[in-house]
Design a protein around this nucleic acid. Sequence first.
DNA 1: TGAAGTTGATAACATATGTTATCGTCCCAA
DNA 2: TTGGGACGATAACATATGTTATCAACTTCA
Lengths: 223, 223
Amino acid sequence: MIEFKVYCSYPQSFGDLFPYLRKSHYLISMFFHFRNKFPRLNVYWDKYLEFQQRLDVPAKTILLDEGKVSQNYIYIEKGCVRSYFNKNGEDKTVQFFFEEEGLSSLDSFVNNIPSQFTIETIEPSVIYLLPKQYVAQLITELSNEPDFTQMILYMSAQRQTHYINEFVSFIRDTPEERYQHLLQERPHIVQRIAQHYIASYLGVSTVHLSRIKSKLAKGKTRF
Amino acid sequence: MIEFKVYCSYPQSFGDLFPYLRKSHYLISMFFHFRNKFPRLNVYWDKYLEFQQRLDVPAKTILLDEGKVSQNYIYIEKGCVRSYFNKNGEDKTVQFFFEEEGLSSLDSFVNNIPSQFTIETIEPSVIYLLPKQYVAQLITELSNEPDFTQMILYMSAQRQTHYINEFVSFIRDTPEERYQHLLQERPHIVQRIAQHYIASYLGVSTVHLSRIKSKLAKGKTRF
DNA sequence: TGAAGTTGATAACATATGTTATCGTCCCAA
DNA sequence: TTGGGACGATAACATATGTTATCAACTTCA
């Protein structure tokens, strides 16, 4: 994919670039995210289990509020979570997360800035929260892992590809096409998630998603 | 920002993850992109100058065709370039690049797969191309640079933030708002680039961009 | 220098999508 | 058990945006 120009000032030396915590958080958030992709790293997970807060919460529980600074990495043991932001009083869903997935509001978590997104459960869920300070410890241990750099690169590349594809899909595809892709590629989302959340994720009103479904249903009916 | 689940199979061992070239290309593409942010690295650039092909080309010269595999890293000495893809016969501009910026169709360059994008000049330009094999050499030398990992992390985080912001902007903002942001934050683009390319970048027709401009002009007029 | 192409504005109309309102179904908690 | 709320379908209308066509100003270049 295409590379983007970065419109930011840049530091004069590398040494100042990554205060310890910043580096740590960025890495660890990737680590947790990919935990299930790299089973060999599960020993680290188990070791830090005791520092995690276990939450057993109902649907619509807010785990991070838009505007607040993210203090925990979030891991989903059971249930389902979405991230969204508010635009003119309306929810815009950015993504869904399910069992065995980790997430954070990355920019907020890494850079200690207010989160652009709210994170909330959309099913009764079991959640683990790992506070930043332990994340920092964990990353220190991880740096001793062989192939650490390669792991990071792999994660970065994967992430970037995912973002780019979401971005391009919004530019390229109509809402109807986006819904069909969702049906084909991630049917578990359509099956499991309430339709108004799907509509919000696709970027259309609930009414319009209803129209799309109705149109597709007609197209399929053959006599 | 939010982290995305990666829907891909995963390798059993790290050792197999990064064939030499893949790793190299990913890194080097970031390196060139950030060259101007890290002047200290310019010695590497100068050293590899001799392996680069210099092109002095007119506007509308295609540097990489959608569907072809990217073979070169592209650096712009003078002029202006855009990346786009074709949807139902229509151009969708993804990004603009200017003097002293480097780019590639990253996914294609790194993974040796067909490019999703076409890259073409939109002004008469002076371009340098660095073939993959030299990119591989360069990255080897770069690995000896102190703070190499931190540099990579910094680049990754910056890139990801940029992609996310572009993505969110499409979800959140109307075309009119997107145009106003462009005017405020990157006015050089609006000044320099023909309006139909801007319209394509904003995701609207040329006619509608004209309407937007006309509406904003009326709003500004005060007697 | 003149003809052809490029760019941008605007009008008229077509289509896509949003908004509001209504209704039926289902589910859960008092 | 039942009543309110959440969810989804649909209709009617409003708005945003696309499409096509036309015209004028401006390049480009033979």
